[in-house]
Nucleic acid binder design. Structure first.
Length: 425
RNA sequence: GCUGGGUUCGCAUAGCGGCAAUUGCUUGUGGCUGUAGACCACACGGUCGAAAGGCCUACGGGGGUUCGAGUCCCUCACCCAGCA
């Protein structure tokens, strides 16, 4: 399907017979992306600790950056003058930018650690501990949070004010008050010049009740249409964002709405459990046109990739591989001890690795596993050497990118169900 | 030799009559899903207990005052500074 201008199109190459999984091909101005696909996240025009050349040799097909961060530093105009995001960061493959709605909301309203039950009695602790709490215009009670340095810092943060037309928020860099709306986001994303862009959306908290969520969804829908209207370039593919929290009718409405108006669709939100996450996908996917690319925003743990792909989602992005990589929480294949319960990871700083001369994940062909032992990696993390973060990031990104490569191949070879079974049991 | 100051859980610190005893580091174990995150949380004398909690040892050694002593007094040892 031709999606925008003359040079962006998406075609389905192969459909899985046992699930909704499919292999697709997205042609963009900077090259072809095969789906299913995982986008490494490079918020500030860099995937932390990795160079663009590292990413290329790892096999990444695309990098996702963030409009909000880049708008503040160095600014959209600067990046435009430097030839756009890809050229700026020496990356000649496709790029994507997130709208920034997620940040404006989360940074303004504050992100807190919650061990609490939501209004439906569901525990918010195991999966998404970071949720976004009530905006200024809600009357919802705040959960109790641990009194830490973090809380003291929160007092310094001024709340963002979400209005129907946009958001007043305070820069996390210097506290300056700024206005952000669909026009700002799209204008900046056009300056950044990514191949794939995202409509400006409002992010609901999983703690909100139906009415608050509905109000938030109305903003997302309105801002979505404004984003389309603000678009002037024809060489950028814009994803609309589905919201509606945990409410079936809101999600279904939003999925239909997004599919109707946008050439590409994405699902946004925060989820209190994996069950909720998978449920949301089940609700939404039937409303998506077959030949539009589908992006699962912010999702990308191993199990979620299998579940998302089998539900028909094509694109994923997630900070987990890089953040976990920097924190010494590194991925393992099932044969080396990775499983659902440990998120397919191990903590390399554990004492048991102190004399372990094996590669991190035997059988893995990444640079880290080809050259270093577990004992050495543990040492790097114990001594806070930056090479540890880098080697951890290299492995984790390689692991996830190649996992998705393998899944794509499995779909083509008609053994996706078998592979999923081998990994998830 | 004299005069001051000091000796507290691996290291460094707080403590000025009710204390298994503060804080930082180290260490241990968790957690991280569109990145204000090279971050955050918890534990950290021993032992019993699922827990509440109990029982042992502990603030350089020894002695004393006190219902009760890292905390006050005496004494010994060692360390630091100044003066001989």
């Amino acid at each position: 399907m031709l999606l925008a201008g003359m040079n962006i199109k998406f075609t389905i190459e192969k459909r899985d017979k046992t699930s909704k999984a499919r292999v697709g091909k997205l042609v963009t101005p900077h090259g072809v992306i095969m789906t299913p696909n995982f986008n490494p996240v490079g918020t500030q025009a860099t995937v932390k600790t990795l160079s663009s050349q590292d990413l290329k040799s790892i096999g990444a097909q695309i990098v996702l950056s963030n409009t909000y961060h880049l708008m503040l530093r160095p600014g959209g105009e600067i990046i435009a003058k430097m030839g756009g995001l890809g050229k700026f960061m020496s990356w000649d493959k496709p790029t994507m930018t997130d709208s920034g709605g997620f940040q404006v909301f989360s940074l303004g309203v504050a992100q807190k650690k919650v061990t609490w039950k939501d209004i439906h009695g569901r525990k918010i602790s195991k999966f998404s501990k970071s949720v976004f709490l009530s905006p200024a215009d809600t009357t919802m009670q705040l959960p109790s949070v641990t009194k830490t340095r973090e809380e003291k810092q929160l007092k310094k943060l001024k709340e963002a004010k979400v209005h129907d037309e946009g958001v007043w928020f305070y820069s996390h860099v210097d506290g300056k008050k700024l206005w952000f709306d669909a026009q700002t986001s799209i204008k900046t994303q056009e300056q950044l010049s990514a191949d794939l862009i995202v409509a400006f959306d409002d992010h609901e908290s999983p703690l909100w009740d139906y009415e608050l969520t509905k109000l938030s969804l109305e903003r997302t829908s309105r801002w979505g249409l404004e984003s389309l209207k603000a678009q002037t370039r024809q060489d950028q593919l814009m994803y609309g964002v589905v919201h509606g929290g945990i409410y079936e009718d809101l999600r279904k409405f939003s999925a239909g709405f997004t599919n109707k108006y946008f050439p590409a669709v994405s699902i946004g939100g925060s989820y209190s459990s994996k069950d909720v996450l998978y449920q949301v996908m089940d609700w939404c996917v039937p409303y998506f046109q077959e030949d539009k690319p589908r992006h699962m925003l912010g999702i990308g743990e191993v199990q979620d990739l299998f579940e998302g792909i089998s539900r028909g989602m094509d694109f994923f992005d997630c900070v987990a591989p890089t953040r976990r990589g920097r924190h010494g929480n590194l991925y393992l294949q099932p044969k080396n001890g990775g499983h659902k319960e440990n998120n397919f990871t191990t903590q390399i700083t554990n004492t048991k690795y102190i004399l372990d001369s094996n590669p991190l994940d035997p059988g893995c062909e990444c640079y880290t596993c080809q050259n270093y032992t577990r004992a050495y990696l543990r040492h790097l993390f114990m001594t806070d050497e930056i090479l540890g973060q880098r080697l951890g990031s290299i492995h984790n990104i390689y692991f996830i990118v190649h996992l998705v490569d393998q899944i794509r191949q499995a779909i083509l070879d008609e053994r996706f169900a078998q592979m999923k079974q081998e990994w998830l049991g």
